[in-house]
Each structure stands twice: as structure tokens, then as C-alpha cells.
Amino acid sequence: MKTYSARASELQPRWYIFDAQDQVLGRFATQVAHVLRGKHKPTYTPSINGGDFVIVINAEKIAVTGNRLEDKLYHRHSGYPGGLKTETLRQSLEKHPERPIEIAVKGMLPHNRLGADMLARLKVYSGPNHPHQAQMPIPWNGPIPEMHVDIVRDDPIYTGRQSRAEDEIEFVDAADTDIDTDEEAEEE
């Protein structure tokens, strides 16, 4: 028996909405990262991006514990001497409310091309609206059995009884064509 390995063509990524309101930043980000990585699915395959799309709304209403609105610092450096810019979480949320969540989730995904691919499926918005109605996203309420659709075995070695009938039909077809060609050959 061969362990299942997902193919990109088999996957049907879904869209989920996460409401960030009053959620604690890190704990919220772990849930988002989990879904982006696809670890909530029994088809999880480490080498391919099997995650779902995540829409985060109300990003500016994210919460932190303690005094982290003032104490949590975001640093970035322009590369020039004296180019270190530092802002607090509060300043960051005011200027670009999506960024703290994006940074938190990014740090929880693999730091490679696959992780970049997964991060591209994260859409963060401030306020309760998002422009992805066409994808028919549903609110995330944890994993449920309906999220998984059984994969059909297609490897003939492992298909067993169920497809044996089909195999026989194929075999007969092949035999017919063989006979035809034989007869043609004889006529010629």
C-alpha cells in the first residue's frame, strides 16, 4: 500500500472568513496559519500547497494581552546608516491595520517558496467587508467532516474489486481492437 500523496489537480481550495475582532493576535494567527498550511485536512501533503484561502476581517480590532499595544515593537531597516524605523503595535494598527496580522501569520508559515505561496492566500482587511463575495467564503468554525470529500483511488494496483469490472471491459475492448487489426492485416 502506498501512502497518499496529494496532487495539485485534486485539491479544491475553499475560502474561509476569520473575524479578528477581540481575538488575541498570536492565538488567532496560529489558527489562520493552520488553515493556510492545510493541516486541517486528512490530505495534508508537506511538499505541496494544500491550504485554503483565508479572509480576515476586522483586522484593526485585533486584541493583545497586557500592555502590548504600547510595548510590542515592529522594527524595520532601510539599509542606510541610521535607517532603523521602529513603531509600536498601536502606531502600526493606525497606519496599516492589516500588517500586524500579516506579519504574525507570515512568521508561522514555512520560510520558503511554499510558505510564500501559502501567504499569498491570506487576505486581510480592516472593517467587516471584503471583496471576495464571488468566492463564496464561509465563516471558519473549526473542521467538520463535510469538509473532506473522499479521494477516488486511481492506481490500478490498489483499486481492488470495485473497479475490476471496469478493467474487464477495457480488456475486452482492447481484445476487439486487436482482432480487428489482425483481420485487416490478413486481408491485406
Binding site: T3, K39, H40, P42, T43, Y44, P46, P143, M147, H148
Partner: peptide, 17 residues
């Protein structure tokens, strides 16, 4: 490696229930 992968998948599937 495979045992770890199986455990990850079983975990995902059982959490659905």
C-alpha cells in the same frame, strides 16, 4: 517521516469529528 505524516493526517481527520 511517514509515521509523522500519518499522525498529522489522522489528527486532522479525527478533529473533524
Amino acid at each position: 517521516d511517514f509515521r509523522r505524516l500519518w499522525i498529522t493526517r489522522i489528527n486532522a481527520a479525527s478533529r473533524m469529528h
